[in-house]
Nucleic acid binder design. Structure first.
Lengths: 342, 342
DNA sequence: AGGATGTGTGGTTACGTTCCCACATAGATG
DNA sequence: CATCTATGTGGGAACGTAACCACACATCCT
C-alpha cells in the first residue's frame, strides 16, 4: 500500500537535459526557452521540441534565485470568510492569472501581527509585488524599505506614496443618508466598525456630510461603533432602538446590516413602516429578503481586478507616478426604506 | 516623483552576513537558524541576535532550490466567486497558515485546461502538495507521476490512490428527499448540475435511494440537468413547473436553489403551500428569506480544514495508507417545506 | 588503553537557472 | 581592406541555502 509510486521520473528534467538532447549548450537552451537573446530559428524549434518531448518544467525557485524576483504576487485580506473579501480575492486572482502571475493568499483576521508575518513570507519568496487591505503601517514600511511595490485596496493607510484602489465611501454613505433624509427621517442611526480605516471613516464622513448639507445637527448618541466580531452587537443594536428611538438605521457594512436586520425580525419590527434600513455592500441576501434591503452597492470583483491591474502596471513601470483610483458605488433602492413614521 | 526610494537596503542580508557578524562559519549560522544539527547554546544566541539585528529574511527560493520542496501548497478550486469554494479556501488557508505553510490559490472555472496549467505552475514551484476540487484526471496524473501528494476535496475523481475529503452526498440528498416524501410529496423534481462528479452523482443517487426505499418509481422527466453557468436555467425551471407539475423541488446546489426560488417569486408561487423547496448547502440567504429554505447544510469551512490537515499529514508521512474522510451533512428544516397540496 | 559515542564546528559542493562575457561569422560601411 | 554592426553560440560564474564530510574534542564504556 505504497502511496508514492517511487515517482516514474526520479529527477525532473533540467535545462541541461534539454540542451544535451538537442545538441546545443545550456546557454542556448536557456535563450530558446526564455525567449531572451539570439537563437537561430531552427535551433529554437529543436529545443522547444526537445523540451516538449521530455516534459520539461522550468524550476521556478532557480529562476527566482537568479532573477531575484518571482511570478507570485502576495495578497493579504482581512477575513477570507467574509464574502466581500472573497470577491476581492476572486477579482485579483482572475486578473493575475491572465497576466501569468500566481496569487498567494493570506487572511490576517485584521491583526497587525498576522499581516507582518505574511509580508515577511512574501519578502522571503521575492514577490514582485503585494496587494493588501492594510491593517497597520508596519507591514507597508517593511515592504517599502525593500522596494517591493504595494497596492492598497478597499482602504488607504500608507504614509508613503503607493498605488491604491478604493471606492468612494463618502459619496456612497452620503447618498444613502440623503435618501433617508429625503424620506423625512431625522433620527438616523449609524452602525460602523470601530477602526481608523479610511473605509469606515469615509462612511462616517458621508453620514455627517449629508446632515450638514441638510443643515441638521448630528446626534452623536446615534452613532454606534463596534469591534470586528462583536458577539454583543445585536444586544447593542437592541439597546439603541430602545433608548434612542431612531426612525432609520444606516449600517455601514454587510455584517452590521445583517445583524440589524436580525434584531428587527426578533423584535417584530416591520420594514419600512416601523423603521427603515440601508446597508453597505450589496451581498446576495439583500435582494432576496422581503422587503429587499436598500443598499450601497460596491463593485467588489472590479475592485480586485483594478488592484491587480495597478500592481502589474507598477511592476512593469516601477517609476511611474503613484495612481489612486476611486470607484463609484451606487445606491440600490429597495423596499427597506420608506417615509419616516410621524 | 520617484516611487521606489532606491531601497534603503540595496541587497538583502544573507546567511553569510549573519555568520560574519557573529564570527562563525556559514554552516553554523545555517544550523542555528534552521534548528537542524548541533550548535552550542551561546553561539546560537549570538546568531539569532545577529539575524534579528540585521533583519535577516531567509531566501525561500534558495531553500526550495536546495531542498527540492517549498512551503507553498497549491490549491485549485472551481469557482472563486461561489461562496462554497470561498469558504473551502478559507478553511484550507487557515489550517495551512497554522502549520506555517502558505497557499497559492487558483480558480479553474471547471476547465481542465486551467487546472492543468495551475498544476504545471505548482510543479514548477515545487509545492510539497496540492489540494484540488478535481475537474479531470489529467492534472492528477501529472502530479502523481512526479510523486506530489494530492488531496481531493468536495468530490472524488482520482484513478490512483490518494487522500480525499467529501461530504456524504448520498445521505444528504436521501434525507432531503425522505423529508419531502414524508410530507406526502410524490412528484419531486431534482435540479442538478450536469457533471460526472461524485458530488452531483451522489446527490442523484440519494434522490433515487429515497424513492427506492419508499418503493416509488422515479419519473425521469422530473430530473433536470444543467450546465455550469446556464443562462437559461430559470426558463427551464419555469418550463418544468408548467409541463411536469412537481409538488416539490430538490435543488442540488446553492445556485440552483436560488434560481428555483427566483422562479417561484416571479410566478407568485407561495412556499410551502403551492410548492416545497429543499436546497443543498446552507448559504446565508436561506435562513433570511421568509419562509426560510429547508437545506442540506454542509460543513464547508471544516471541509477545507480537513483537507489541509490530510495534506499536512501526507507530507509528513508520505507512505501512510490513503485516507478518505466522509463528513456528515445535516438537514436544516425551515418553512419552505410543507405538506403536499392535494 | 583503546575504541565507541555524542557534541560542536567549518570547508565545500550542488541545487537549476540566467546572464555576462568571449568569440565566431556574415554582411554592410567607411 | 579595415572596421563596424547584427546575429548566433558556448563557457562559466554567480544567486543563497542545506547538507555531506572531515575534523576536533570531550566523555563513557569495556
Amino acid at each position: 500500500m505504497n502511496l508514492q509510486p517511487r515517482r516514474n521520473e526520479p529527477q525532473p528534467v533540467t535545462l541541461a537535459d534539454i540542451a544535451r538532447e538537442a545538441g546545443t549548450s545550456q546557454s542556448t537552451a536557456s535563450r530558446a526557452l526564455s525567449g531572451r537573446g539570439y537563437v537561430a530559428a531552427d535551433v529554437r524549434e529543436r529545443l522547444l521540441a526537445a523540451a516538449e518531448r521530455l516534459g520539461y518544467v522550468p524550476d521556478a525557485s532557480a529562476q527566482t534565485l537568479k532573477q531575484k524576483t518571482s511570478r507570485i504576487v502576495g495578497v493579504v485580506v482581512s477575513d477570507l470568510e467574509n464574502h466581500f473579501y472573497g470577491g476581492l480575492a476572486a477579482g485579483i486572482e482572475q486578473t493575475l492569472r491572465e497576466a501569468d502571475y500566481r496569487m498567494v493568499l493570506v487572511g490576517d483576521n485584521s491583526e497587525s501581527g498576522e499581516e507582518i508575518a505574511a509580508v515577511r513570507a512574501f519578502m522571503a519568496m521575492k514577490t514582485p509585488g503585494v496587494i493588501l487591505t492594510p491593517v497597520a503601517s508596519d507591514a507597508m514600511t517593511l515592504l517599502h524599505r525593500r522596494g517591493v511595490p504595494v497596492v492598497e485596496v478597499d482602504r488607504r493607510l500608507a504614509n508613503v506614496p503607493c498605488d491604491g484602489v478604493v471606492i468612494d465611501n463618502v459619496r456612497g454613505a452620503r447618498e444613502a443618508v440623503e435618501h433617508l433624509l429625503e424620506l423625512g427621517h431625522r433620527r438616523i442611526a449609524l452602525l460602523v466598525v470601530d477602526t481608523d480605516w479610511t473605509s469606515d471613516a469615509g462612511r462616517v464622513q458621508g453620514y455627517r456630510d449629508a446632515h450638514a448639507a441638510a443643515r441638521l445637527a448630528v446626534d452623536e448618541s446615534l452613532i454606534l461603533r463596534f469591534p470586528f466580531h462583536d458577539p454583543t452587537a445585536e444586544e447593542r443594536i437592541s439597546g439603541l432602538l430602545e433608548r434612542h428611538a431612531p426612525t432609520a438605521i444606516f449600517a455601514a457594512n454587510n455584517l452590521l446590516a445583517e445583524q440589524a436586520w436580525r434584531v428587527f425580525r426578533a423584535r417584530g419590527l416591520a420594514l419600512p413602516s416601523d423603521i427603515s434600513l440601508v446597508g453597505f455592500d450589496d451581498v446576495q441576501w439583500t435582494g432576496m429578503v422581503s422587503p429587499g434591503i436598500t443598499t450601497v452597492a460596491q463593485p467588489t470583483i472590479e475592485l480586485g481586478r483594478r488592484a491587480a491591474r495597478l500592481l502589474i502596471r507598477r511592476i512593469d513601470e516601477p517609476h511611474a507616478d503613484p495612481v489612486h483610483e476611486l470607484l463609484q458605488p451606487h445606491l440600490v433602492v429597495r423596499g427597506s426604506t420608506g417615509p419616516a413614521p410621524r
